[in-house]
Amino acid sequence: MATDIIKVENLEKHFGELQVLKDVSLNVKPKEVVVIFGRSGSGKSTLLRCLNFLEYPTGGCIEVDGTRLEYGHPTRARRDAIRQIRMKAGMVFQEFNLFPHLTVMENLIEAPVTVRGESKKEATERGKELLDKVGLSEKADQYPIRLSGGQKQRVAIARALNMRPKIMLFDEPTSALDPELIGEVLAVMKKLAEEGMTMMVVSHEMGFAREVADRMCFFDDGVILEEGPPDQMIRDAQHERTKRFLEAVL
């Protein structure tokens, strides 16, 4: 099997006195889809946000596609590594966070042009393909305010993909959506998984997890309490806390 594309070693995160991540280690193989679930406040979002350094870990080490970074103060070399990792890791947020002053296409090409130095033409070409993939070709010139929540999230996915990331991080991508809009976003994510994208997904969509995930991780109080294939996890969780949580969300 190929070497791990994501390595998390002994990761710790403190917010002042509060320790949100306690010695978390996790490896993800290329093309693997990992769904992380657990109570709010269990640290699952923080783990994702530490992976691309939106939060700075207070201990441990992260490696994404060969770029390795220990925790510590942001020196120049470390900032370069963070930038490398962020270029390799696309992120999708619960609240979409599209740029409201830019049209859909401008949202898609902003980072490829300013960060990667691509030409607008090149970035737009790829942007068109991506909008087509998420089924929103006709929205290219609209401003985000004109889109529904589900459409916004699909644009957000296309925006992240236009940076040609190696992995995709989804932080509760459907939690802010009306129930009838969740399906269209999950469909796009499923398609992405089928194309072989490595994905880490914080989500409580158990149907999606069962269908798409290779592995599920149950987060509890800052540690990965339990992990395994979705079928096994959902039917036959080992820990009492996992079982109780699954009963509540299923």
Binding site: R86, F93, F99, H101
Partner: peptide
């Protein structure tokens, strides 16, 4: 969220201020 989205796209603090926040 706007700043985080820009950072997640690997935009530098300066690019984020100039291209996302100030406009």
């Amino acid at each position: 969220g706007q700043v985080e989205a820009a950072h997640a796209l690997a935009m530098s603090p300066r690019q984020t201020t100039r291209r996302i926040v100030l406009p």
